[in-house]
Amino acid sequence: MNFTFLNLVGYALLAVAAFLLWRGSTSLSARLVSVGFLGLILWGTLSSDGAAEDNRFRGYREDAFQISSRADCLGCSTGKREGVWFVRGTVLDGVMVLKAEQVVAYKVVWAGGGGVYLDGQPQAGGCFSRELAPQGIADLRFEGALQARLEVGPGLSCG
């Protein structure tokens, strides 16, 4: 719960509304529906106070590599399948930096959108893969790429 002045005003208004709506109808169901609606509103304000809603994947780190992201990611998911770590989104927009601790390969696949840049160079073809030496850095920029996926792991190539 947050107790700034505006929040307190909000809670007071909700309490007044609850009182009025409980008194205002003779129907028990309608009263309960009132309670439900006000509860939903309260829940909405509380949940938006707590965790800020954003669609950002911030980063990931393991022994072989670390990745930091300042990209907006809609419909984003990450995971690891058969030794290959991936982040994929319906829309990826922004910059991701991949830093290798050991030798790793990575692959970027995308379709649609504005394109993908590696170290400032536009990439073509919807897919590319590179290998990074230890301490190597890849600077990836997604420009409104629709359906993009970044994979990091051993032995990746655009088949």
Partner: peptide, 25 residues
Amino acid sequence: SYQLSRLGWLAGLAAFLGFFGLVDV
């Protein structure tokens, strides 16, 4: 059900705002 007590506007407001909460949930 709030017509008699003339609180229809408040009920309507609650229903409108509650919709977004419900979508969130």
